[in-house]
Design a protein around this nucleic acid. Structure first.
Lengths: 341, 341
DNA sequence: TTGTACGCGTTATCAG
DNA sequence: CTGATAACGCGTACAA
């Protein structure tokens, strides 16, 4: 039976209000009063009831982080950083998985049946812009978009410059002497923004390098998993004119693709160079190690948390767009020359 | 401005009580009444305020999952399954990271300064049994231990048979003809239970196979990361008489160890066979693919969630121990014969 | 079967 | 600077 404010007040012979003031660090409390109350607090091992506080203030101190799947390395890394950043600002984090389910995303965003459990949402969405636009009007819950959505001024939003990131990766392959550069992870038109932007960067880099865009060198992938990367890469290799390099739209796709290349009896990077994007730790220890575009997840997380907290404090603040830095990291999978392995 | 029970009652011209009955699915409500109230609920888009309900009932509908680091593949996989299992029973999940910090673990367990935010804790601890014993008396918060702690009857607890799992892995290496089998991930005496149990299984398997236990073939690791696996394996290889096989106490250690073997100019499994434990997806696509002991995380998660919910409903129920199944999966890293790569 | 009224533990308003 | 007291929105004992 935990002690309440009233218990403390009784014990210290002061009013409940005074205790509350002490607990919440109110300024104008005499030193004598403060120590007297603090003594009672310690003796009773009083801890504020956060639920009651929430009911009163309307703030829960909890943020929701919504991702497709928490066990995708990029998202678990992001979650780690988000939890840490949130903790520093006094927030806790609840994690929801959409499992690639649009309906579930929509529920989460419109409040579903269990609203008011958190103060804001950090959302790494699959939905298209159109859906998003249509959705969030109703709930009005503070929302920050994570990942790479187009910015239309309605939502706070932190992401890297995807077009440029893809461009950098492909350009690097060109400069390494590759001429038949495939892309793995494209998606049907008018769907999600991320693959669209990466494809744009891919095509732009090809064009700037005097290379033709060949649709036969691209393969779609729905979930950006190792398994999808594996099967898609196999298809690519089985085609008439196989690529001599593959730009994968995620590191996980790249891990699958690498394995597919080896199973096909070819070598990375000798026969086929591979570059991913995300910079998950797995790629630093894989054989060969994976060239990739590194995203600064601690930065992304810190920005996202700051933005959402700002918006919670001021719902009418204008939406901002944060562009996180990225940088190409060349490792063995696209290194010129032959690696030892 | 969300609608409240009172608003609905007013609109439907009934008492607040009746609305409450309808919302919580109370049985004895006339059909006419129910539809009338439901109509008002829909019109006002009423959603129960969970915080107020919590204040009243003392139940938050939230579970805490406490792990060292969420971006360790085993834990993120576990988190995925826990979130899914919890969702099926109407619970949400909050994730806390201890970051290998005993102090933080203790805080979380004793309630810290923010108790009452969840109904129970699923705890994957680093702490030793002694610490645990000393800690939980005070808070009385429902607690289920995940992972591989000794069972002392005081806590609910779901884990695999670690001794047997290690035994199986080492025995497999023996049967593959290895004679100098190292262990990677040991820890100083009297610390954590998991490595202790795995060491026990390791030594038992050696003994049963007529092999001597050689301390020089073992290496400690503090965090079970790829990086630690890498450096520890390097040390092992640099020793006078290198091992011809290494049993790693986690898949992540194994991934680092494999890379170290290659960087030393040796081959897996030809020169050194490697077996891990956890069965993370990464090991299915690595080169070579990783032999491992597979833990059934969906089962573990489902059991853990069931146990905690039971305990929430009946705090005085006797503690139970659930032993989750495990099975050895032999892949390329310990396969007899030479792999293609 | 339904209505009334109180309390869960805080914070906030209004006096003093 | 401190005290009394009204909400916050819901569940439920008690009454009808």
């Amino acid at each position: 039976m935990p002690a309440t404010l009233r218990d403390v007040a009784e014990r210290a012979n002061v009013s409940i209000r005074t205790v509350s003031n002490v607990v919440s660090g109110y300024e104008h409390v005499s030193e004598r009063m403060r120590t007297r109350v603090q003594k009672a607090i310690d003796e009773l091992d009083y801890r504020p009831n956060l639920v009651a506080r929430t009911l009163r203030t309307g703030r829960t101190g909890v943020l929701a982080l919504v991702v497709p799947e928490i066990d995708v390395p990029y998202f678990s890394q992001l979650a780690r950083d988000v939890i840490n950043s949130a903790g520093e600002l006094g927030y806790r984090v609840m994690i929801d998985q959409t499992g690639h389910d649009h309906q579930r995303e929509r529920e989460l965003l419109t409040g579903g049946d269990r609203t008011m459990l958190f103060d804001g949402i950090l959302f790494s969405p699959l939905v298209t812009k159109a859906e998003l636009r249509e959705m969030n009007g109703e709930s009005g819950m503070p929302l920050v978009l994570l990942g790479e959505h187009d910015f239309d001024g309605r939502f706070d939003h932190v992401a890297i410059d995807n077009v440029q990131a893809a461009y950098d990766a492909v350009r690097h392959l060109v400069l390494s002497g590759r001429t038949r550069i495939g892309a793995l992870g494209t998606q049907p038109a008018e769907d999600y923004a991320t693959p669209q932007q990466r494809s744009a960067g891919y095509r732009q880099a090809l064009a700037d390098s005097g290379l033709d865009f060949e649709p036969a060198l691209t393969r779609p992938a729905a979930h950006y998993s190792r398994a999808e990367g594996y099967t898609a890469a196999r298809e690519l290799l089985a085609a008439n004119e196989a690529p001599d390099a593959i730009f994968c739209y995620s590191d996980l796709l790249a891990m699958g693709a690498m394995r597919a290349v080896f199973d096909a009896g070819l070598r990375v990077p000798d026969d086929i160079a591979i570059v991913g994007i995300d910079d998950i730790e797995e790629g630093r220890f894989s054989r060969p190690s994976l060239s990739t575009v590194s995203l600064d997840t601690p930065f992304i997380a810190a920005q996202a948390v700051s933005r959402i907290v700002e918006r919670i404090d001021d719902p009418d603040r204008e939406a901002v767009e944060v562009v996180a830095p990225h940088r190409l990291i060349v490792r063995e999978s696209s290194a010129p020359g032959r690696p030892r392995t």
